[in-house]
């Protein structure tokens, strides 16, 4: 590549980098303004112009910490349950251990094409019949079912040779030991992909917690921030920006540490279909 075209490529990449980060940097700046206004100059003239008062308000005057905790519980538990269920089902489907395995896999593929939003109405009606609305369990269970996870696990386990498990079985280990001591460690890269993608997806889910939870103390952080956006909209942008950033912080941290797994998941999705 010539020097000139390289220069064009990199300058465009840096332009988009600025486009990506500008909104968040701006939000951070606004969150440090002590009083309501968006008319301050972007670059503070001195450090004394900055203040953490909005963050203090958020943490002490609103239910924000409780929402964070709820999101953590829901997201963590759902991801954990989902990963175990997907690993076990994916294994059975990959090894065709049950009659009709391919039929089940076809169902999984079909589900991946269904937009899950249309399930919201019947999910809500069903969950309210069994008393799981306004209950974190009513969020965790539906989020634990995810066809992409089954698909990912099945495809990955297909690539692992059967020989190791069979050797272990001949050496006298139980099926359970063969699965969790031999197959599981070899599946870890795919499990990493699934864990990271699911944590981010469950944390960011909005429509499900919005309809299932109406009690303020049980809300997740996404719904909580959306509520703030409407309640204190015209009174305090600083608090709102602080909430937006803090609410997104956990997934950002996960992404910064584990972005390789997340990108791997995307590449797999793009490459396989």
């Amino acid at each position: 590549m010539s020097r000139k075209s390289r220069w064009v490529v990199y300058s465009f990449a840096i332009f988009w980098l600025i486009m990506v980060f500008f909104p968040f940097v701006w939000a951070f700046r606004i969150s440090l303004i002590p009083t309501y206004t968006t008319y301050v100059s972007f670059f503070p003239r001195s450090l004394s112009e900055l203040s953490l008062v909005n963050y203090k308000y958020l943490l002490y005057q609103t239910k924000f910490p409780r929402w964070l905790l709820n999101s953590l519980i829901v997201s963590g538990t759902a991801t954990f349950l989902n990963t175990i269920a997907c690993f076990m089902l994916g294994y059975v489907l990959a090894r065709k251990r049950l009659p009709g395995s391919d039929w089940i896999f076809t169902m999984v593929l079909a589900l991946m094409m269904v937009p899950y939003q249309i399930t919201i109405i019947s999910l809500y009606l069903g969950l309210s019949k069994v008393g799981l609305t306004n209950n974190l369990l009513g969020l965790i269970l539906p989020m634990s079912a995810h066809p992409f996870g089954v698909f990912l696990m099945r495809q990955y386990i297909l690539m692992i040779p059967k020989d190791y498990e069979e050797a272990a079985l001949i050496d006298g280990s139980t099926r359970f030991q063969a699965l969790f001591r031999i197959v599981l460690p070899q599946t870890l890269p795919a499990i990493g992909v699934l864990l990271v993608s699911m944590l981010i997806e469950t944390w960011n889910n909005f429509i499900l917690p919005l309809v299932i939870i109406t009690k303020t103390s049980l809300k997740t952080v996404t719904v909580g921030v959306a509520d703030l956006a409407f309640e204190i909209l015209n009174t305090n942008w600083g608090v709102l920006m602080a909430g937006s950033l803090l609410g997104a912080l956990p997934t950002i941290i996960i992404f910064v540490i584990f972005n390789k797994y997340f990108l791997k998941g995307l590449t797999l999705q793009g490459g396989i279909k």
Binding site: P23, F24, W26, A27, W203, N204, F206, V221, T222, V223, V225, A226, A229, L240, M241, G243, S244, L245, G247, A248, T251
Partner: peptide, 8 residues
């Protein structure tokens, strides 16, 4: 999360 992005 899209909620944060939308608010910002």
């Amino acid at each position: 999360t899209l909620v944060s992005t939308a608010t910002i």
